[in-house]
Design a protein around this nucleic acid. Structure first.
Lengths: 231, 231
DNA sequence: TCTCCCCAAAGGTATGACCTATTCAAGGGG
DNA sequence: CCCCTTGAATAGGTCATACCTTTGGGGAGA
């Protein structure tokens, strides 16, 4: 869990319920009702609601209650919101949105990384590229996924842009969700893996164009495959 | 203000203070101390702190207190965090980060808009492009800025991607911050304005490549100019 | 000097009281 | 008949207090 304590438990119940549409837009909750339903005190309810309010998922008004806001108002970049949406019925839509975001951001990050990466970044990328090749050949999907996540996170971090860097976890969630989605696909395609090596090489060689191009091929490929799965 | 009530007032004080480094990383606050300093009750302090915690700007631990987390942990996509950083000493760094993000996202959004824009979007874009031309010629910087913000927000929204759409306000903040930064530059360059019209035309004509190219020229130009200003 | 245990400090939770903004409806005037 | 005023009733907002729980640090004892 992310936020600890009783408010965290409340959030872990309410957040997914709202994100999945189980508690629909426009629904009104009363604080007292939540106190009873979860057997907690006002203090706890208020803190949880405040957090949901800071994500713009609900609005609390006097004499009215706690109203669920339309999805279009939610803070869609909040890591918790993303996680909740990926876990529920919104998963396909969320994967699509994130897919487009990746197409926009990751090539740019790769280009920046080619000029900003430290030696450590470069070493890490090269090592991960090798690991990807090995684990793919061994059809070890679990550790392959972990290395894939680490690879993309490292590129984002190496870009030197804090905002890109913070998308590392989100991209990780996407990759995890995607592999769960098509239920462990056949052996990862060797083409994609070659592209990862290409990205690593280009970044280490300080070639922004090549890094960007290779990364773009990776993420657009991923988005295309996603669209095929969801079609 | 964003969050209302007393917790909102607390946030409006603490957030900027932390974002600007006035309260440095690693600093420890005690809840009781905050109660006295702001003359509010425990309830209020806790709710404000909870929100800061959900942004990962602070961490609250028993027997220790409320610790300011390192900047690298902050939820840099949270609109409040962005606003606070833009308002304080971090402004140059924040503008740079956001500039790179714009370069990544806005061209992609323009391309998507070319295939997803509704007729209303198209009308709005065309109208805004005209307005930009007019207000630029009149050197009416204030309304020019408003239309510029609306233009970019409309493109992002027309992309059909909810995450892109939500960057509209952020981009608006960047544009505002930028014009404040170089203190009302001379008359907006007619070249940039022609590019805005080009974007609008390309989107309405359903030409993704042209829309993307024109938008990329706009945002990379903006980033270059920003770098010159900060150099 | 090292270890272990106990205590105090600080946040976490529960409750009861009271304040305040808002809504909705009843009643009076046009 | 309609509109405006006005007055509760309601639900959140804030405060004060009491007590629980975790945990870091210091002191006692080996």
């Amino acid at each position: 869990m992310d936020i600890q304590g009783l408010p965290g438990r409340l959030l872990a119940d309410l957040g997914p319920a709202i994100a999945s549409g189980e508690i629909p837009e426009g629904a009104v909750l009363r604080g007292e009702e939540l106190e009873e339903r979860f057997g907690v005190s006002r203090t706890v309810v208020r803190e949880a609601v405040r957090i949901l309010e800071s994500m713009r998922m609900v609005e609390s008004r006097r004499r009215v209650g706690i109203t669920v806001q339309p999805k279009s108002d939610w803070d869609v970049f909040d890591p918790l919101v993303i996680r909740w949406r990926l876990a529920g019925a919104d998963r396909p839509a969320q994967l699509r949105s994130l897919g487009s975001l990746r197409v926009a951001v990751e090539p740019a990050a790769a280009a920046l990384a080619a000029t900003h990466a430290t030696d450590d970044d470069c070493r890490a990328l090269s090592a991960l590229a090798v690991e990807l090749t090995v684990t793919a050949r061994a059809a070890d999907l679990e550790t392959f996924l972990q290395h894939d996540i680490a690879f993309h996170a490292t590129v984002l971090k190496a870009s030197g842009n804090e905002m890109f860097a913070h998308l590392g976890d989100t991209v990780g969630a996407v990759l995890t969700g995607r592999t769960e989605y098509h239920l462990m696909p056949h052996q990862p395609e060797s083409y994609a893996i070659r592209l990862h090596r290409e990205v690593a090489e280009a970044i280490c060689a300080g070639d922004p164009e090549r890094a960007e191009r290779a990364m773009r091929t990776i993420v657009t490929g991923a988005l295309d495959e996603l669209d095929k799965q969801l079609a």
